[in-house]
Design a binder for these strands. Structure first.
Lengths: 273, 273
DNA sequence: CAGTGGTCTAGACCACACT
DNA sequence: GTGTGGTCTAGACCACTGC
């Protein structure tokens, strides 16, 4: 970043840098919308790139604000604002006195960040940990709908996993999920079965895939014969259907999931604001 | 706020003010946890008080940051951080060049902020506006569960409303809702029926009650005979049960609502992060 | 043009964690 | 004590809105 004159005022300096990142020409914005982007947004983008590139892995301590400020040639306040937003997006976690860390699904604290099913009485702690059972895991060519949801071409290899989650011995969730074959090369029933804790923690540690956000579509459906048997309910029993697409950095879809939840002793919790 | 010496350094000054707001005594914190609260949090609290007191009503322009900074004797940056958080909580809306406004449910933009049901194909705009039908509105003594949810004593007066929402002529949502009698004095079927737009907009304009956040519990249930007839489905048809408690400023519960959603052509949308 | 929110900087001090 | 993030201030300039 060329700095000709050390700048008379702070902002003139900052404007130079912003221009040097977004624009190429010396001046004269020809576009109707000059696409002005604040410096801190550009810094945010640079940090995001490092996260995507795996320069800092989940759980890692990233450089201090002052160090990043030096690296990017901006003030600490600007780095702070960038980290503020990344922290609000759950990509980074700040800990006063210690530093800023890359968020991870492995912390006990956020083990079930994406599982919104809760017992009607008591809390998650009181019902004990979920019991996981892998029913199936196979590699196959993506059916049309799965391919569409994962942004793949029909027929590209994917992994298909079927599993059951039970609480206090009661089978409660039956899920099918599909993962793109390339990033998850080597996935097997054994890998899944041998792992304790949330599945997304395994994806992080074994495949370097961090799920960042997800969209869900919920419907009420009647249990078919097979699902009913697996979940221990009568056919036709009302089940909560949860269809999820989960994304990693960059809004790349990395998982398509279809779940059937028993809601006779649990409910799906949601907070609106 | 007493300021003896104009302060040698900025922060010493700020610390004085913080102490003058939270503490009463001159010094010597006796409690084990001094309950340190940042200045901007205190400012946030003061702004919140003005909102609760109705000093600024939904849609109103509030004083500029500079003016508030002067009023509270803090810097603009501190007011800014307070407003940042209130804005993130959807209590205020900033508009560059114009000012900061009290958020409202009346804007077309956020008409359906709390309604998460979406058509399976197309979007909300394509299906046209919801058709609202009030089936019943009566004043009665709160049943035990309703009282519990609203933080009232059993038997205190509440309003009970039953309504149906239809999309493109298809009855899709059947809802019962309960409102505390005192704040909603004068509510009637006519009031509700004559109003166009979201119900929460009516609550704002007619009763000065602004809903700020809500918790929902979702379950899949089978339609009983009455619900089935109203919604035009067969008894036993799977419906999405949505139980909601909505809160105004101050986390005071102001509405308890139970809805049954048809999800054969719609789904409940949720974003996880 | 003035007024508003939005961005950026520089520097000070506080609260917290480790050593 | 040192280093980290957290808070606060003061001042400058940018981008947008409306007179």
């Amino acid at each position: 970043m060329d700095q000709t004159t050390p700048a008379s005022s702070p902002m003139a300096n900052a404007a130079d840098k912003a221009a040097s990142i977004s624009d190429a020409g010396p001046a004269a914005p020809t576009t109707g919308t000059p696409a002005f982007s604040p410096l801190y947004q550009q810094i945010k983008g640079l940090i995001l790139q490092s996260l995507q590139a795996g320069e800092w892995k989940p759980g890692d301590l990233i450089p201090s604000e002052l160090e990043l400020a030096g690296r990017f040639r901006v003030s600490q306040g600007t780095v702070r604002k960038a980290i503020d937003e990344l922290s609000a997006d759950n990509l980074l976690v700040r800990r006063q006195g210690k530093g800023t860390f890359v968020a991870t699904h492995s912390e006990q604290q956020v083990q079930y960040r994406f599982l919104r099913l809760e017992p009607d009485s008591g809390n998650r702690a009181s019902q004990g940990p979920a019991e996981r059972q892998i029913l199936d895991c196979r590699r196959l060519r993506a059916p049309a709908e799965v391919a569409r949801m994962l942004g793949l071409r029909s027929g590209e290899p994917v992994f298909e996993v079927r599993r059951v989650l039970s609480f206090q011995g009661v089978p409660t969730i039956l899920e099918d999920l599909w993962l793109p074959g390339d990033p998850f090369k080597g996935l097997s029933s054994e890998t899944l079965a041998n792992h304790q804790g949330a599945m997304y923690a395994l994806f992080e540690s074994q495949f370097g895939v961090r799920m960042v956000r997800a969209n869900e579509k919920l419907k009420a459906v009647a249990a078919d014969a097979e699902s009913a048997q697996t979940l221990g309910v009568a056919p036709g029993f009302p089940l909560l259907s949860v269809e999820r697409v989960a994304y990693t950095y960059n809004d790349t879809p990395m998982e398509y999931r279809r779940g059937l939840y028993r809601t006779d002793h649990h409910h799906y919790h949601n907070e609106l604001s």
